[in-house]
């Protein structure tokens, strides 16, 4: 059974003694979206995901996956779900291939399916050459890749990731993000809910974002719409011609441009409006014989929005 919103948190509340980790949180995750769950430490992200994956139970409210209550019927609810919660550990006496066989057998997969999926996934997470080595000898980054691999084993329709790059070195983070990007681009029916406190990661991977603080939902929408709500956007423009003050001055005079300055071998342009205004800016620069080879959104844009929302909620 699938619905338009395969993941739903309904008036979710979780208390640990007097501490309220999740406070009346309601959230619907759209089918085939890649949603980032953002929030500071202690905001309730991990607790919500733990309830979603049946690692703990809510004090009140409910979580549903494909309309099935996870707490009441976890067996059926988790049938089409792959998860990586926190930094899971593995049975260190097993190899990745044996681990996948164990989990595949638990999922009722045939030997042929397990073999096919294992080979495909190990290639996807770039661990083929380590397929028959004991997990006990793996680095944290390698184990995290295996963790993501096992989440894909049953060809899930839903993937729940709790800070999948947490604790990895920069290279490990980059590799993990690359794998997540291929998932996003390569799959037909796949809904991903990923918690993170790395804004650039969410900005890079997700098309939707839900921000939480103190266990409450602050905002949930498409990233573009959230950023579009801001009065101005900032882009970094790289040009074939070496940018100079004269170029900056010319750009400053373009309508809607609030400010422009030299920045890191490019020009940082702040302008009013959303995506269509950004497209107009691109055309205007072309008409001014400024050859733009790259126009990227300032990675601080989401951060600014996030910080302002967090600030408002306190």
């Amino acid at each position: 059974m699938t619905s338009e919103y395969p993941i739903e948190l309904i008036n979710l509340r979780k208390e640990y003694g007097t501490f309220v980790a999740v406070d009346d949180l309601s959230l619907k995750i759209k089918k085939n979206s890649f949603t980032g769950l953002l929030g500071p430490n202690g905001a309730g992200k991990s607790t919500s995901l733990k309830i979603l994956t049946n690692l703990t139970t809510p004090t009140s409210g409910a979580v549903e996956i494909n309309g099935i209550n996870v707490t009441k019927n976890s067996w059926e609810a988790l049938l089409t779900v792959g998860t990586v919660v926190e930094t899971p550990e593995f049975y260190l006496y097993l190899t990745p291939r044996e681990t996948f066989r164990y989990l595949g057998q638990l999922l009722g997969m045939s030997s042929e399916s397990i073999k096919y999926e294992t080979d495909t996934i190990l290639e996807k997470v770039k661990m083929t050459q380590w397929a028959d080595k004991k997990l006990g000898t793996f680095s944290k980054g390698m184990r995290q890749r295996i963790a993501l691999g096992q989440a894909l084993l049953n060809n899930p329709d839903i993937i729940i990731l709790d800070e999948p790059t947490s604790g990895l070195d920069p290279r490990g983070m980059a590799e993990m993000r690359e794998i997540l990007k291929t998932l996003r681009s390569g799959s037909k029916d796949l809904t991903v809910l990923m918690s993170s406190h790395m804004l650039h990661e969410v900005s890079d991977l997700c098309d939707h974002v839900a921000m939480v603080d103190h266990g409450k939902l602050l905002v949930h929408d498409e990233i573009d719409r959230i950023l579009g709500d801001s009065e101005s956007r900032t882009v970094i423009v790289k040009t074939v011609e070496k940018p100079d003050n004269a170029m900056v001055e010319k750009i400053s005079e373009v309508s809607n441009v609030a400010s422009a300055r030299l920045y890191d071998n490019g020009i940082e342009i702040r302008f009013k409006g959303g995506k269509s205004e950004q497209m107009n800016l691109f055309n205007t620069l072309a008409n001014m014989n400024i050859t733009v080879y790259s126009m990227s959104e300032d990675s601080n844009a989401l951060e600014n929005k996030y910080l302002s929302l967090i600030k408002d909620s306190r």
């Binding site: 994956t53 690692l55 988790l78 926190e86 593995f90 999922l107």
Partner: peptide, 12 residues
Amino acid sequence: ERTALILFTRPV
């Protein structure tokens, strides 16, 4: 050993 994070999140 945190293997519960793998095992308990499965339909088992």
